[in-house]
Design a protein around this nucleic acid. Structure first.
Lengths: 243, 243
DNA sequence: CGTGGAATTGACTTGGCTCAATCGTGGTGG
DNA sequence: CCACCACGATTGAGCCAAGTCAATTCCACG
């Protein structure tokens, strides 16, 4: 029968996560939405250009990380927004309001949703509407909190805050076997652009946190938190030694 | 008859602005919402504490400016979010997600909306829902753009960007007689906290922009833009002299 | 096993912070 | 009406965290 869960949704985080959008849909809605959407895996570094977004302005992140990258004159670049598992992006009319483009910061799986179906579901399915609303509010709060990090913290504090946030955002994912192991879903260079610092400084700061025995780097993209409470204190801006 | 527009709404920007929330409501909805809401004027510096927000988590800004202020250890402070005319804040569950509190940065008029009525209106009135959704997206985009300013720009560029943004946000307001006259709705100190710099640096930067003949300060809280295109170029990060 | 891009390290420079002194200004009381 | 006061803005001098530039080192990949 046509009401079974589509194959492409079975393994998708948006369907399997308790707080995933597709988990809120009826089977009928899921089938309809799926029929007019398509998911794809994009490689690190590839961009989602404006033309594609005009046709498919609604997209959900299944895994990996999307960054909203802006380029200033002189080659300076910034990654202003970071979107991860479960985030739903509504980029209708974004061209006028948001300079920059979406870039995959690591291998990323996304699902492009049909705007018409999406809108219809929001009209009729209250649980889905509440979840989408809540996700958008979470994105806003995260953006604001990130702004406060950028405005008020030094390099050490910003990197610590980022690590703590990474740990927290990955935690809800199912099947995590090790709470203290954190994946950094992007390159040093991208992280620098996100945190408003040079890659050299990012590198020095990681080394610094290692020397303080707060973390241990496992590889370039993963690390282990050795002292989460202390890391949180640094992230919160409580001076390492002073009152 | 009970269906007339309530007195307290007659002069309100949310009702009179074309893009205001209350302009989208039927007279019946407006009367009902008004009966369970209340507007008030708050002085510069006063805070809206968490307890009040628990009972009245939805509020709309009629005029003035609200800042979301965070205090780090050691007295460092940050204004992470800036809300102005027409913005609708949904702070349900904000306590867990957003550290900091709302502060009035200038004399500000807000309207506290009944969450129950608000939610009901969103369910039944599509035009209102679309507007609220769009306003929240605008807030997200602004927060992201602000983050990109903080991450990638120097003092001169940040201040220029802020002035341009102020001019743009004030422009839609009715009855503006002078396009180039910009009101800065906060003190130097607050502006510094918002832009991630010290008040001294803010001051020096204003002077610097004046010396470059891009602006002329009229008072502490208002200035005139002398060369908008050039100011825009500075704000966009195009080096003043270099390529 | 080489090759190219990314990360790291070190040396030097600088934009913005800090601290301290002074100037303006709006509100208050005589 | 004016002197005074308190707070915020401004200015200046000196310093430091982070940026810049250049040289290696480290990986991932063919």
């Amino acid at each position: 029968m046509s009401c079974l869960v589509p194959d492409s949704c079975r393994a998708c985080a948006l369907y399997n996560d308790k707080a995933g959008f597709c988990a809120r849909l009826s089977q009928g809605e899921l089938v309809e939405l799926n029929a007019q959407s398509h998911s794809e895996t994009i490689r690190r570094g590839s961009r989602i250009c404006g033309q594609v977004l005009e046709r498919w302005p609604i997209l959900a992140v299944e895994r990996g990380a999307l960054g909203l990258q802006q380029v200033f004159a002189g080659g300076r670049r910034t990654i202003a927004g970071l979107f991860m598992r479960g985030d739903i992006l509504d980029l209708r009319n974004a061209a006028e309001r948001l300079p920059g483009e979406l870039v995959a910061l690591s291998e990323t799986r996304i699902c492009r949703l049909s705007p018409a179906r999406f809108e219809r579901i929001l009209q009729t399915n209250e649980a889905a509407r509440v979840l989408v609303w809540d996700n958008l509010r979470a994105q806003t709060f995260r953006a604001i909190a990130h702004g406060s990090d950028l405005a008020g913290k030094n390099a050490r504090e910003k990197v610590a805050a980022f690590i703590v946030q990474c740990a927290g955002r990955a935690a809800p994912a199912a099947g995590r076997h090790d709470e203290d192991l954190v994946e950094i879903p992007m390159r040093r260079r991208d992280l620098g652009e996100y945190l408003g610092m040079q890659p050299e400084t990012v590198s020095r700061t990681f080394r610094d946190l290692e020397k303080s025995r707060l973390i241990r780097a496992c590889s370039l993209t993963s690390l282990r938190i050795l002292d989460l409470p202390a890391l949180r204190r640094v992230a919160a801006g409580e001076a390492s030694g002073a009152a």
